[in-house]
Amino acid sequence: MDEVSLQQQVLKAIESRAPLRISAGKTKAFMGQDATGTLVDLGSHCGIIEYDPRELVLTARSGTRLSEIEKALADAGQMLAFEPPYFGSDATLGGTISAGLSGPRRPYSGSARDFVLGCKVLNGRGEIASFGGQVMKNVAGYDVSRLLAGSHGTLGILLEISLKVLPRPASSITVSRECSQEDAISIMSEFLSRPYPVDGACHDGERAHLRISGSSQAVKEARKKIPGDILPDADQFWHDLREQKLPFFHRPGTLYRIAVKPASRPLHLNGHWLLDWGGAQRWLYSEEDVATIRHQTALSGGHVTAFRNGRNSTPLPPPLSALHQRLKASFDPEDIFNRGHIFATL
C-alpha cells in the first residue's frame, strides 16, 4: 500500500476514533496482547530504497521482508549486526524494529534500536514525519527513531527505516564445553571484561557455547586460549537458538523471558533454563506460580515476561507509567494505534 492510502486510512480512523491494528508479516503477533481494531496491512509497503555498502547504511520500506534485506547485505559481505529473530519467513523490517528483538549478538554488538539511524512515521494525527536520517551521527532534535524501536506500533506506523549495517566477520567458530549453569555464568561474565572477540555466549542447560568471530587471525589466536570442543554446524545452532528452534524450546508450558544483569547467580526457580546473551537473557519453562517467578526475578533486579503473550510483564512504577501515557498521547492523541497491545494502559 502506498503512503497516501495509508494516510487516508489513518485520517478516517482518527475521525471515527476507531482503533487500528498494525500488521505486516504476522510473525510476531504472539508478542503482547491482542490489539483491537481494523487491520492495517503494511506487507505490501515494501522495497529497499537505498543501500550503499560504502556508507554502511540501508534504507527500506517497513513492509520489506527481512530475508530480502539480509540477502542484499550478505551479497555485499555485510549484515544486520543485532542478528534479528524472524519467527517466520514473512518477518518484515517494520515488525522487527517495532518488536525491538535482537539475537545472540546483542550484548556484544548492540540491540535493534542501536542500529536505527532514522525513520519516516505516520503519526496519530495523520501526519507523515521523518526523524533521524541516513548518517551515523545526528543529534538534531530528540531521538524519536530509536524511541519508536520496540514501541510495538503503539506510537505510529513506521513507513521507512534507515539502519546502520556492518561488515560480516571474516571468520567464526564456536567453542563448546560441558558445565553447570553456575560455571557458565562465571565463564560468560569473564568474557565481558576480557578483550576476546566473543560475539555470542549461551548455556543450553548442559553446555556453554562461546562464539568467536573476527579476522581469521583473531579467531585462531582466541581459539588457542579458550578451552573446549569446536561445535560442528555452529551457524545452524545459533540460528536455532535465535529462532527458538532448539529442542529446549519444544517443551509445552509457558516460556518466560527473564532479563537480569549478566553475572546474576542462578535464580531460585525450578524448571528448565537456557541462558543467552552471556547470561543477560534467560529462558525458563517452569511450573512455579507467576508471583514466585516475578518475586525471584525482582530479587535479582530483573524483569520477566511470558514471552508468548506478554501478560505477565513487570508493571511500570506509577510516575513512569503516567509518563508513558502522556508520551503515547503526544504521538497518538486519539489512541488509534495497537490499542492495549503492550500494556493494558498503552
Partner: peptide, 27 residues
Amino acid sequence: TMEGELLTIGGQTLDTPGYDLLALMTG
C-alpha cells in the same frame, strides 16, 4: 523531572519494559 519526581530510566538489564526513554533522554 521539573515536577521534582525521581525517575529511573533504563536499567541494569539490557532492556526494560515500556518505551525506550533512555534513547529519548540521550541528547
